[in-house]
Design a protein around this nucleic acid. Structure first.
Lengths: 131, 131
DNA sequence: CGGTATCCGTTTTGATACTG
DNA sequence: CAGTATCAAAACGGATACCG
């Protein structure tokens, strides 16, 4: 019986279960798709256009996984040619505040991250060759 | 000149820069290490013990990257045997509210994600063999 | 339009053994 | 204790071609 937020820092709900949820965000494109859909329902090509250099394969794969995870919904209009729209589910929307929060953090602290990297490289260099 | 939060959902600060920041969290173990250090300064073995099935290689690699990104600080005590401690920097601490927020979301919505996956698999099965 | 299928190189991760 | 080094396996990502 552990307390959820003991100073010790228990990760709660079991590291294993949490890991399963972390997987939601681990694929390279998921967060970008979430932002794209944050503006409302979008068609496949719209999402593709919005996320500059994503390939069809990765976009489809990401959308499928997000649909499976219950974050987005896929709406097929049986027209010719076919039109497919995607939108956030309630579950997906409930996640957005955190995603937006992270984006805000990124905008505010990006420069610090870059500076830290430069500083680290200056101190330790990428010396792996001789000497 | 785009507005940062137009309804359109511009990802702001440039998708490219944002992508660079997203990389911070993309490695499998980073978030778990952040939680581990959220409880305060920890020694290498303590972190390792806390994150069940991480290997030494991955832990060291993750810690190095996080140090380079300025999220954590490495403190070496020149004793024999050596003792090394890690702690969050100010930058790392500034990120924690979002990480904690996500964990809270995970705890609250994990069941829904699992249910969504089960539902999806029931509907579409993992049928890739014949028929 | 909105995908699938296939091939293939790159990156990430893991197992294991060894060290100052 | 806190790592490194090495090798191999697996996941990821991209290019390309084709389909309903």
């Amino acid at each position: 019986m552990k307390k959820p937020d003991a100073a010790g820092g228990d990760i709660s709900l079991g590291e294993c279960l949490y890991r399963r949820v972390l997987e939601l965000l681990e694929s390279k494109w998921t967060v970008l798709v979430l932002h794209a859909l944050d503006g409302g329902r979008q068609r496949y090509r719209q999402i593709e256009a919005r996320i500059q250099d994503i390939t069809q394969k990765m976009l489809t794969q990401t959308l499928r996984r997000m649909e499976r995870d219950g974050l987005i919904r896929r709406i097929v209009h049986p027209t010719v040619p076919p039109a497919v729209e995607y939108e956030l589910t309630d579950l997906g929307r409930s996640l957005m505040p955190h995603i937006r929060g992270f984006r805000t953090w990124a905008a505010e602290h990006f420069a610090e991250v870059v500076a830290a990297r430069a500083e680290y490289d200056r101190k330790y260099g990428q010396r792996d060759a001789a000497e």
